[in-house]
Amino acid sequence: MTLWLRARRAWLLAGALLLQFTLSCLLGGVLVPSPSLAAHATLDIPLRVFLPLILSCALVHALSDVIQLERGATRNTAVADGLLVAAVAASAVLLGLVAAALGSGDALVAARNTIGYVGFATAGAVVLGPPIGAMLPVAHVILVALLDSGRTHIALLAWPVEPLSSGVAALAAVSFCATGVLATARLGGVQISALDARGRR
């Protein structure tokens, strides 16, 4: 277990979680005037939409670097990896609730986005490999920023910029998270590494 925790860079993940939480509380409300291709103007997108990418990238990085010794492990490391994804998502929600209790209501939006990005990135990493998996939420967020018109967007596609009250956005985030947890638990970091190795040729 100790080896697994070190291999999965538990301290890096804890640091990324705290960094993201701190930045979300301090700078989450800062508005980024993003040029919109759909509205032919700039749209103000809160920084809290971008900040959860820190944790999703750190998690994919932690899951992707599987050591050879794990191939002979007697425990099912794939399930442990799935639980790790779930634990990271749960921690983000817990910190979001703490921040909300302290008066930063928008921290829950960051928490929702975190669980969505984490699931999106890990599911993408299992299917397409870690580099593409880590880039999926990044590309999605920037495309949403570029293509959102600010008025008549499709909530299911632009879920990261939806308000906290949006049920569709919450559903999308939870669905991504569940997919990420299940895909990682079913296939696990070893499979990620194998796909990555095949990708490297």
């Binding site: 880590a134 880039m135 920037i142």
Partner: peptide, 14 residues
Amino acid sequence: PALMAVPGAVVLSW
């Protein structure tokens, strides 16, 4: 590491 550098470069540049 690539998984930090690539997304970080894209988002920070943007």
